[in-house]
Measured scan of single mutants.
Amino acid sequence: ESETFDVELTKNVQGLGITIAGYIGDKKLEPSGIFVKSITKSSAVEHDGRIQIGDQIIAVDGTNLQGFTNQQAVEVLRHTGQTVLLTLMRRG
């Protein structure tokens, strides 16, 4: 069981404050995608409180990250504006 949710964030001096990890899993058993690996102290993400380590980032400002490499996803996140809309999925 999984839930998908949107989080809109405004960057602070730390930026968004997440590091991400790309993961290619076994299609049947484990998900592939871009996941939140860590959250920086005092960052926008930590202050917001809704995003957790292990959440999958589905889209950034409407750009679907399906099939993106870790590096491609980093580039998408790097080129966002001051306000960012993240679409995430959390597995229950």
Rank of each mutant, 00 (worst) to 15 (best):
E1G: 10
E1R: 07
E3N: 13
E3A: 10
E3Q: 13
T4W: 06
T4S: 09
T4Y: 09
F5Q: 01
D6M: 09
D6H: 12
D6V: 14
V7L: 04
E8F: 09
E8I: 12
L9C: 07
L9A: 00
T10P: 05
K11C: 08
K11L: 04
V13D: 14
V13C: 15
V13K: 15
Q14K: 10
L16M: 08
L16Y: 06
I18A: 03
I18Y: 04
I18Q: 04
I20A: 06
A21V: 09
Y23T: 12
Y23P: 09
Y23E: 11
I24A: 14
I24T: 14
I24R: 14
D26C: 12
K27F: 09
K27H: 12
K27D: 15
L29A: 15
F35N: 02
V36H: 04
K37A: 09
S38G: 15
I39M: 05
T40H: 13
T40D: 11
T40Y: 07
T40A: 14
S43K: 06
S43P: 05
S43Y: 05
A44Y: 08
A44K: 07
A44W: 07
V45H: 06
V45S: 09
V45T: 10
E46V: 05
G49E: 06
G49C: 05
R50M: 05
R50E: 05
R50W: 01
Q52Y: 03
Q52N: 08
G54C: 03
I57P: 00
I57A: 01
A59D: 02
G62N: 07
G62V: 01
T63R: 13
T63A: 09
L65T: 06
L65M: 12
Q66P: 00
Q66V: 09
G67V: 04
F68D: 02
F68G: 05
T69G: 06
N70M: 15
N70Q: 15
Q72L: 06
Q72E: 13
Q72G: 08
Q72P: 01
Q72D: 09
A73I: 07
A73Q: 06
E75M: 04
L77D: 04
R78F: 06
R78K: 13
T80P: 04
T80G: 06
T80A: 08
G81H: 06
T83A: 04
T83I: 07
V84R: 00
L85D: 04
L85M: 13
T87H: 04
T87V: 05
R90N: 05
R91T: 11
R91V: 05
G92E: 15
G92C: 10
